[in-house]
Design a protein around this nucleic acid. Structure first.
Lengths: 231, 231
DNA sequence: CCGATTAATTGAGGTTACTCAACTTTTTTA
DNA sequence: TAAAAAAGTTGAGTAACCTCAATTAATCGG
C-alpha cells in the first residue's frame, strides 16, 4: 500500500466518478483537500472488519472483494466492487468502525476521503445525498437477496447463484474468474471449498459450464438460472 | 386495513416522528398532503415482497415484523419495527417493488407517503437525507450481522442471538414475546419450529431462560451472550 | 361451552454438506 | 531451479439439523 505521486493523483481525480459530477466546485475542492490516494496491491486489505476508521474509500481503479469474517477458517464473500464504488460509508453515520472487510483482488487505486468532508457534502447537497442513498438501497436489496439464498437454497442453487453473479454483465470488462481461487468461489456460494470443487465438476459434466484452468465459461445460463430459482 | 378518520390523523401527525423535526413547514405540508393514514390489524400485511409500490410507510404506532419469504413453508424474520420507523424506503430509489414483506404483529397505524414527496424532501433537505442514510446504515450493519449469524453459527448461537435481540432494550416497553409464536421465534433464529422448541427447553434446563406460557424471561444474559459469541 | 382449527411438543429417521485425510498440481520463494 | 508452500482434488465418515408423523395443548367461531 503506497501513496501515489501528485501528477497521477490529479489525473485520476479528473477522469473518475459520475457521482462527483453532482458536486459544486467548492465541494469538489473540499473533497480534494480532504483525501489521499493510495495504491493497494493485490491481496492487501482496504478495510478490516471492526477496525476504527475516520475515512471512507472510493475505488478509482481496480477490483475489490468485500467479505464478512466468520471464524478463523471461514469468510463469506458479499460482493465484488469495481471503480466508482464507495467502501465503508456506514463509518460516516454509525459508530466509526468498518462493518466488513475488503481486499484488493487485483492492484487497486483508491481515494481515502475524510469522513467529515463526505458528511458535509451529504448534508448540503441533496442530489449527492440522493445518489448515496440509492447506492445503499441497491446494496440493501442485494443483502436481502443474499439472506434469501443462504437461508433457503442448497448447494446447487447457491453455486449457480454465485456463478451467475460472477459472470454477470457488471464484470464483463474484467475476467473476474482470473482473479478468484476455488476457495473464493466457495465463499461467494457459502460452501466449503471441497463441495464447490465437486459441484463444479458436476456442473461441467451436465454441460452447464466449461472449466478451463481458472476460467469458468457459462454454457447454459438459462439452466443455471433455473437451478438458482429452484434452490 | 382501514383509513382512520380525520381528527385522529391530525392528532397523530403532530405527536410523532423526531425525524420530521428536521423538515421545514412547507415540507411538512407537502408530506401531509401526500399521505394517508391506515390502520393495519394484527396479522395484516403492510408490504408484500415483490409487490409494486408508489409509496413508503411510516409506523405511527404499533409493532411490525419484517421478513423475507423463502418457499411456501419458510420465512425468515429480519427485524421488528416500532413507531418512528420507515418501511420500504428502497421503493423510492430502486425499481419500485418491496424487497421484503412485513406484517402487523399487533394493531398498527401507519402513514402511507407518496414516493415523490419523500424523494423531493430528500433532494432538498440534506439534514433529512442524512437522517435517512443513517437509518439505512444501521439497518445495513444489522443485515451484515444477520449474514454472519446465519453463515457461521449453529442452533445454540442462533437461538441465543434471537432471544437476545427480542429481549433487548429496544423492545422493553413492549412485551414482544406476547405477540410471537414459537414459529416466529424459530424464524428469527433461522431454525425449524421443532428444533426451536427443543432447544428452548434445553436453555430452560440450563437455567438460561424461564418459559412462562408465551413469555420468555432471560435469566442469564451473560451466558446467552457467550453462547451467541461462540456460535 | 363445544367442536374445529391452529399451535406446541416429542421422538425417530434421514439427508445434506461438512470435516478430515491423503494426494496431486500449481505457485512462490530462496 | 529446487524446495517449500499454497491451492486444488478426491473419497470416506459424520454431525447437525431437518422432515415427518403422532400426540397434546391452546385458541377461535358459532
Amino acid at each position: 500500500m503506497e501513496t501515489i505521486k501528485e501528477t497521477d493523483r490529479e489525473y485520476i481525480c479528473e477522469i473518475q466518478a459520475p457521482c462527483f459530477q453532482k458536486m459544486s466546485v467548492e465541494e469538489k475542492e473540499l473533497i480534494k483537500r480532504k483525501k489521499t490516494t493510495v495504491l493497494f496491491r493485490k491481496g492487501e486489505n482496504l478495510t478490516k472488519q471492526g477496525a476504527f476508521a475516520s475515512y471512507i474509500l472510493f475505488i478509482v481503479d481496480g477490483l475489490v472483494k468485500q467479505y464478512v469474517e466468520g471464524d478463523a477458517t471461514h469468510n463469506f464473500n458479499i460482493r465484488l466492487l469495481l471503480s466508482g464504488e464507495f467502501i465503508g460509508l456506514p463509518v460516516v453515520f454509525d459508530k466509526g468502525t468498518f462493518y466488513c472487510s475488503s481486499v484488493a483482488v487485483k492492484d487497486t487505486t483508491a481515494f481515502l476521503i475524510e469522513k467529515d468532508a463526505i458528511e458535509s457534502v451529504i448534508k448540503h447537497n441533496g442530489e449527492f445525498a440522493f445518489q448515496i442513498i440509492r447506492r445503499y438501497s441497491q446494496q440493501d436489496t442485494n443483502l436481502y437477496q443474499i439472506i434469501r439464498n443462504m437461508m433457503y437454497k442448497q448447494m446447487n442453487g447457491r453455486l449457480a447463484d454465485a456463478l451467475l453473479y460472477l459472470s454477470s454483465d457488471t464484470f464483463k470488462t474484467e475476467n473476474v474468474f482470473q482473479y478468484l481461487s476455488r476457495r473464493d468461489i466457495a465463499e461467494f456460494a457459502g460452501l466449503s471449498t471441497e463441495s464447490t470443487v465437486k459441484l463444479l465438476k458436476t456442473f461441467e459434466k451436465d454441460e452447464l459450464i466449461v472449466l478451463r484452468e481458472k476460467n469458468i465459461l457459462i454454457k447454459n445460463r438459462e439452466m443455471l438460472s433455473e437451478i438458482s430459482r429452484r434452490g
